[in-house]
């Protein structure tokens, strides 16, 4: 007989090498390009906002688990870091620290832990925090600092409107789209690489796409949600643009500005709050795209990605029910 006692467990006895921690840190790694771009354009403020948001999220997660759940804190799984970074990515860099901390509290406390922690939250926690802040402090949340390349001096940066806000304002005043675009200081190339005002992490479409590709290769996300979101936005706005090119912005503008890329690649793909099947993910993605355009074009806010994702998050259980995978051997039996 063996001296050491043998382990006995049910099959399978082999396990894939992936785990939650690796996935979470993979997402963090995927966010790095966008983070670096933000540091490049917003300077130390970008680092400050990120550090505060991450520290606050991790702290609140630890605190709530310790005090209310009385369980062993699981902050090492990295999910709080992801939430913190996503929250930071969704705010302007000149946001006062205390607003950020409140945002983190709402994100972790209400958005995540009140439902039972990782995996149980119906809504994307970072977006819950973000939308809460947007509604509570609309001025601070929408005064975006102007970009300054590699400026590490801590100064009160000038603020300016985002291209999205400019277009919305212009179109509302009856100005034709082509004219607004011409008068705008940012070209489409600038928008692609991130040379424009906006929330910390959303400015560079290119950096976000690089991160998205990394996640695709690591199989952290599937192609369904980003493609569905981007394609539906492009098609919907394309139709509008085709109807009247002067009254509506063109698809490229919609895709490159605001939080579309960040939302489509990092926020809508959140595993916990997105549907389970490929078909469901497509429905969910299209929903996000359509609602985003509806808010952008006819709504009161210039940007609608966060709201669109939160609204579609609420539909996820329903989508899951409606798009159950077709069972093996199901069709033949019916014949």
């Amino acid at each position: 007989m063996a001296n050491n006692r043998l382990l006995v467990s049910m099959s399978p006895h082999d396990h894939g090498k992936d785990n939650v921690k690796k996935i979470m840190y993979g997402v963090v790694l995927a966010m790095m390009p966008a983070f670096l771009v933000s540091v490049y354009y917003f300077g130390l403020d970008a680092i400050r906002v990120n550090l505060i948001a991450i520290a606050a999220c991790v702290f609140f997660e630890w605190f709530i688990q310790k005090v209310f759940f009385k369980g062993k804190p699981t902050i090492t799984d990295g999910s709080a870091i992801v939430t913190g970074m996503l929250l930071a990515f969704n705010v302007p860099t000149n946001l006062p620290w205390w607003i950020l901390v409140i945002g983190a509290l709402v994100a972790i406390g209400i958005g995540k832990m009140s439902f039972g922690g990782l995996g149980n939250n119906p809504f994307n926690p970072a977006l819950v925090g973000r939308v809460f802040l947007l509604i509570s402090w609309p001025v601070q949340m929408t005064s975006y600092p102007k970009i300054q390349v590699l400026n590490f001096a801590i100064t009160d940066a000038e603020t300016g409107a985002t291209p999205l806000a400019l277009v919305k304002e212009g179109l509302k005043n009856g100005e034709p789209f082509s004219q607004i675009i011409e008068s705008m200081p940012t070209s489409y190339t600038d928008m692609l690489i991130g040379q424009m005002g906006g929330s910390l992490g959303e400015i560079s479409a290119l950096a976000l796409i690089i991160g998205g590709l990394y996640m695709l290769i690591r199989k952290i996300i599937t192609w369904h949600v980003p493609v569905a979101v981007l394609a539906s936005i492009a098609i919907f706005t394309g139709i509008l643009y085709g109807i009247n090119p002067e009254a509506y912005a063109d698809p490229a503008f919609h895709l490159l500005t605001g939080g579309v890329m960040l939302g489509a690649i990092f926020m809508a793909t959140d595993m916990v709050t997105s549907p389970m099947t490929g078909k469901g993910m497509l429905i969910y993605g299209v929903g996000i795209g359509v609602i985003t355009v509806l808010i952008r074009v006819w709504g009161a806010y210039p940007e609608g990605v966060s709201f669109a994702i939160l609204i579609m998050n609420a539909f996820v259980p329903l989508i899951n029910k409606a798009t159950k995978p077709k069972r093996f051997g199901e069709t033949i039996k019916k014949q």
Binding site: K21, I23, T74, G117, G119, P325, G329
Partner: peptide
């Protein structure tokens, strides 16, 4: 860990359960 609803189990199930 907690289930993070990544749906990988659904995707790998050969019986589509």
């Amino acid at each position: 860990y907690n289930c993070i609803r990544c749906s990988r189990c659904t995707h790998v199930c050969p019986m589509n359960l």
